[in-house]
């Protein structure tokens, strides 16, 4: 088990005459380190536990902990918990959700918006991914993809602001429309579900594009050629070959984009109006005040997360069944 550092060797294994002992050799033969290493590796079992202890602890306390604490807070009747008083568990916080349309309207609006925006993202990015994977030479693919990646390194707020400038009453779109004489006065794009949609598709497009691209890239070109030789037109080839074989990419892209777009807060605040209040704003409203409303906010967050998980779960199941059905 000893790391023999007394003879120093170069990369070919020849002994090197002199010089100080290499760093790792000194470490390996240092008494306290030896004791430590022997302690760590006394048995494979102990070695595993020492390796696993910290990650497991981290995952439980840092990844699961916040979720569980949110669930707990959503179930207690008074918050912050006054010392000495027993806490009562209650479902009242969840009941508030059903009691008032100013709560469940934004909820259903958020889910509808997220679904519609996800679909729009899919429709917009599929041809782009298809073009990249099928019609661009291998050498240029990365360059073309990189070009699209650049704007996506820019933050959420900056990109939202960019959309505000694009769609404003004196913005570029209205300017161009006026130029061509299509309109006399500016169209108020901003603070509508349209501006919100443009913004959210802008922010999420990459998360759709990458799974689609990697699915399309794996698709063998020979299949398309064979189908073409057998007389299948472009649309048939797309419907019968590309689409079924990229369902996995579609399903993971849609899941990702749906989950992300339910969670946007700043974008709806900046791009949306009073008629497009989303559930994230409702939830956030409970956290602007000192704390007694937190349990309701937590309950609403739990409702939203559960709903998003159920929807994406059902969606993935459906896609899976579709895939199974197609290969038969």
């Amino acid at each position: 088990m000893t790391y023999d550092a007394s003879v120093r060797k170069d990369s070919d294994g020849h002994a090197v005459a002199s010089g100080p002992r290499p760093f790792w050799g000194r470490v390996a033969n240092w008494g306290p380190y030896r004791a430590f290493a022997v302690f760590l590796t006394a048995s494979p079992r102990r070695q595993f536990f020492i390796l696993a202890a910290f990650p497991i602890l981290w995952l439980l306390t840092q990844h699961l902990g916040p979720m569980l604490q949110m669930l707990r807070v959503s179930l207690i009747d008074a918050y912050p918990v006054a010392p000495g008083t027993p806490q009562e568990f209650t479902l009242d916080n969840y009941m508030r959700f059903f009691g008032d349309s100013i709560f469940w309207m934004p909820f259903f609006r958020t889910l509808t918006f997220a679904a519609v925006f996800t679909f729009c993202t899919l429709i917009i990015t599929y041809p782009v991914a298809y073009f990249l994977a099928r019609h661009v030479s291998r050498k240029n693919q990365m360059l073309f993809l990189l070009l699209l990646l650049i704007p996506f390194w820019v933050g959420e707020i900056v990109r939202t602001y960019a959309i505000m400038i694009l769609l404003g009453n004196t913005g570029a779109v209205n300017l161009v429309l006026k130029w061509f004489g299509l309109i006399d006065r500016p169209i108020p794009f901003m603070y509508t579900s349209f501006s919100m949609g443009v913004g959210i598709v802008y922010l999420t497009a990459l998360y759709m594009l990458l799974p689609l691209y990697s699915a399309l890239e794996k698709l063998p070109q020979s299949m398309n050629e064979a189908a073409a030789d057998l007389g299948a037109g472009a649309w048939t080839r797309f419907r019968r070959i590309s689409l079924p074989l990229t369902i996995e990419g579609i399903s993971s892209g849609c899941t990702l984009v749906f989950l992300i777009s339910t969670g946007f807060y700043a974008t709806p605040v900046l791009l949306g109006g009073p008629s497009t209040t989303v559930f994230a704003e409702t939830i956030a409203g409970f956290f602007h005040v000192a704390g007694d409303e937190w349990p309701t906010g937590a309950a609403f967050a739990v409702i939203m997360f559960a709903a998003a998980l159920v929807i994406t779960g059902v969606f993935q199941k459906l896609m899976y069944m579709l895939r199974k059905g197609d290969t038969r």
Binding site: I260, A301, F305
Partner: peptide
């Protein structure tokens, strides 16, 4: 976890 939920958790 969607952004807003992660933030408040």
């Amino acid at each position: 976890v969607p952004g807003i939920i992660s933030a408040i958790a």
